[in-house]
């Protein structure tokens, strides 16, 4: 449990997918104009990351790796398989949400299918492979990474809502300002690097 918490904190704050690795920037910049939409997209990202990460772990370990079911190294198929899993999971999530919660479906709207091309999802799976996480760690990494993404998009949306009333130079308005704000937030998040996740984990136990 300690290890689980450790990876969660690390993925959410210290190695934040948006602010430290620039993953999921497109939707992060495009959908962060108001807090409401940012909230919906953030939730959807947590959900999809949390689901696809363990599924991709199982596929990587039992199908693609050399000790897997087929006995040969199939890792060159990794990109195609991962992206197919992500696309079909997003489709599945969309169908489930539409069936059981039409109000949430209406709120998320176009953002659900857009998650397929959110780099944070595929990036998370690729990081999981290169860092050699095990099954429970991959779940923690998925949820933590999703939570960090959620936090970052809510924060920038709140700032952008306020900054609309400020006197920004015309050429810098909107997009330019969003970039500079993200840079400042990245530096602010770097101060969290001092956190020792292991200490957190032992405190939680």
């Amino acid at each position: 449990m300690g290890e689980f918490f450790n990876i969660f904190i690390k993925a959410a704050f210290i190695e934040n997918l948006v602010l430290a690795y620039f993953l999921g920037m497109c939707s992060y910049l495009a959908v962060s104009k108001t807090v409401n939409t940012a909230f919906g997209l953030g939730l959807a990202v947590i959900f999809v990351l949390g689901i696809t990460m363990p599924i991709n772990w199982v596929i990587q370990t039992y199908l693609l790796s050399e000790d897997g079911l087929f006995g040969t190294d199939l890792t060159f198929l990794r990109f195609i398989i991962f992206i197919a899993v992500i696309a079909s999971m997003v489709q599945l999530v969309e169908m489930v949400v539409e069936k059981f919660s039409p109000s949430l479906y209406a709120a998320l709207g176009i953002f659900l299918p857009l998650i397929t091309v959110n780099c944070a999802i595929l990036g998370g799976s690729l990081f999981m492979v290169s860092r050699e996480y095990n099954f429970s760690e991959s779940i923690a990494f998925g949820l933590g990474g999703g939570f960090g993404w959620f936090l970052a998009i809510i924060a920038i949306a709140a700032i952008r809502e306020k900054i609309r009333y400020s006197n920004v130079p015309p050429a810098l308005r909107g997009l330019g300002m969003a970039f500079i704000l993200t840079g400042l937030m990245g530096i602010a998040f770097m101060s969290l690097m001092g956190i020792d996740p292991a200490a957190f984990a032992s405190a939680a136990e």
Partner: peptide, 14 residues
């Protein structure tokens, strides 16, 4: 730092 890239692109856009 990665953050510098954001500043530079922000300034390019400006």
């Amino acid at each position: 730092l990665p953050a510098a890239a954001m500043f530079i692109i922000g300034i390019f856009i400006w």
